[in-house]
Design a protein around this nucleic acid. Structure first.
Lengths: 252, 252
DNA sequence: CTTGCGGTTGACGTAGCGTCAGGCCCTACC
DNA sequence: GGTAGGGCCTGACGCTACGTCAACCGCAAG
């Protein structure tokens, strides 16, 4: 029976000799014999096995899975079906990723009317895009779209001032907390009332008690927000949430 | 200024301490100071930098690119646009892959009417699915669809016999070649004539000289085919092609 | 005898950490 | 004063599928 050397196999199949030696090392494809000086020689069966291996590799399967298949330990159809599922998952992931990246680019390019960036003020642009989906889950499309429209209706100057307004809230709340005020105290509740009014403005509608509480919960529950607030002042997220809860209890 | 320990940062941001040490090691995020016993301490600026890093990481950027961005060496928008392109490429790749895998599964499950598997007899099922696109490029949709219809119109027994017919051609050609016949010699041309007729049958139409020559060229030019034929007999692909060219010259 | 080709066996590098193993420092408890 | 425990540290290996040297060997041609 005719055999082929490494170089011949590389010319025939297009794989490198390094790959052949790798497959030998991991036991995926062993030469039919190794002669004088360790030279590998492959037979017809090995060529055919290599064909199958390369086919499955081009389908994106991992080498250990391929080994199971060509050794007959795993039915090919089953493996491919599982692989197809994984591919679908990966496609979905990439789709979502691409959408988020596109939204981030739009925001960075200053198209401020595209998404209601004020919803998650305190987070940088890209993060806001990411959280728009979260917002739609939490409060529904109608609320988010209304907020979008409301911000869009503002003048450019008003829009640009939004982050500063939030920053003002945060600063004042941090000061009050530093001077010993509780979240339910009068001065703090006054700031929270302003906060509520401003949220209503950028949302385009007055949040229900539940929605407002949900926003507060987001501040403390999501590490991204907590971190942002904690960078301003330690424990500010929890403090603000407490104030929002108290405000909702008393006024909504 | 307040600083945070490793554990605090992990609680705030959700990253593991191992990740923080890794970022330190590669210079992506260094602690503001390392005190008694090498303990890392992070300041407000580091927290904010980490926020940006994590955001960009969730967008799928690589750490070295992220480093360039947060260090100001690379404009964020530019990097994201390039990243978006890469994502698109990757999505296209995955889409094609998923389609090929799906086609392979269909063939393995015995739905032989789905694709004209005889077009690339000698290649295994998955490979045929892969080459259908190549066939449509080479010969056009009409030809491929006609072949599909022709095979579909055969009886199941006829269909199952197709690979054996090709195998017979290959065996006889290898024998003739082994006994010294040239590709243009009478006995070889007789087999090629049968080959042509059989191709015409599975194609559903008589191939033009150009199409038949193209098929022969595919046998020798594509390493996948060459390998398959060479596994039957060395140089068989070139021999068959030569015979097909001679046949086209003389008869088409 | 030298050169060159074709092949060999290590061994490191890749991305981004997870996961031990082993050790140090500080605090609380007995 | 000894010890247990918690929190943190520094290596170092593992994962995927090879690419890419480096060093070496056998055989044939010049």
């Amino acid at each position: 029976m005719r055999t082929w050397t490494t170089t011949e196999v590389t010319r025939i199949t297009g794989v490198t000799s390094r790959t052949l030696r790798h497959y030998d090392a991991i036991g995926l494809l062993q030469p039919v014999a190794t002669g004088h000086g360790g030279l590998r020689r492959y037979g017809r069966g090995e060529l055919l096995r290599l064909q199958r291996i390369l086919l499955l590799k081009r389908l994106g399967l991992r080498l250990d899975v391929i080994a199971e298949i060509v050794d007959g330990a795993l039915p090919e159809v089953d493996a491919l079906k599982r692989h197809a599922e994984q591919l679908d998952e990966e496609r979905g992931r990439l789709d979502r990723l691409a959408a988020t990246v596109a939204a981030t680019i739009r925001q960075l390019e200053g198209d401020q009317t595209m998404t209601p960036e004020t919803w998650f003020d305190g987070l940088d642009a890209g993060r806001q895009a990411e959280y728009e989906a979260e917002a739609r889950r939490r409060w529904g499309d109608a609320v988010v779209d209304a907020g979008d429209a409301a911000v869009r209706a503002m003048s450019p100057e008003e829009r640009r001032a939004i982050p500063d307004v939030f920053e003002g809230f945060h600063r004042r709340l941090a000061e009050l907390r530093g001077s010993g005020e509780t979240a339910a105290s009068g001065p703090v509740q006054a700031v929270v009332a302003e906060h509520y009014a401003f949220i209503a403005k950028v949302w385009g509608s007055t949040p229900t008690a539940e929605a407002y509480r949900g926003l507060g919960a987001l501040y403390t529950d999501d590490p991204a927000f907590t971190a942002t607030y904690d960078a301003v002042a330690e424990g500010l997220a929890a403090f603000l949430r407490e104030g929002m809860d108290a405000y909702a209890d008393a006024n909504l």
